[in-house]
């Protein structure tokens, strides 16, 4: 599981840069081509794709050290499994 997904809640209009700043993520930890994708506009909820170690560090369920002012994602790290067509059956 090389890369994982994390969610972040940010006021609109959010950008990938603002998400990276909010979570203290370096550029080489983030899939910048994937970008910041809105999941639920009403809840200002976004998703981004990050390395597994970054996901563990900032994810709310991750194994990273917990500090009072350490930036945290809204959720994650979540899996990003491959998907395939359901046909024709083999």
């Amino acid at each position: 599981m090389a890369e994982v997904l994390i969610t972040v809640r940010l006021p609109a209009p959010a950008t990938l840069e603002s998400a990276m700043r909010h979570l203290d993520l370096a550029e080489d930890e983030v899939d910048t081509a994937y970008g910041l994708v809105p999941v639920d506009p009403r809840r200002n909820l976004y998703v981004l794709r990050v390395t597994e170690s970054a996901g563990r560090r900032v994810g709310d369920t991750g194994a990273g050290p917990r500090g009072g002012d350490r930036p945290r994602a809204e959720g994650g790290p979540y899996s990003d499994p491959p998907i395939e067509p359901y046909g024709p059956p083999r």
């Binding site: 994810g59 709310d60 499994p81």
Partner: peptide, 26 residues
């Protein structure tokens, strides 16, 4: 018309990052 065939690339059910059984996955 697609989906995930295998749990191999997923966190196990019960893990908060799991997809297959987790309504909170993005």
């Amino acid at each position: 018309s697609w989906g995930s065939f295998s749990p191999r690339w997923d966190f196990p059910p019960g893990h908060p990052g799991n997809y297959s059984d987790n309504p909170a996955h993005p």
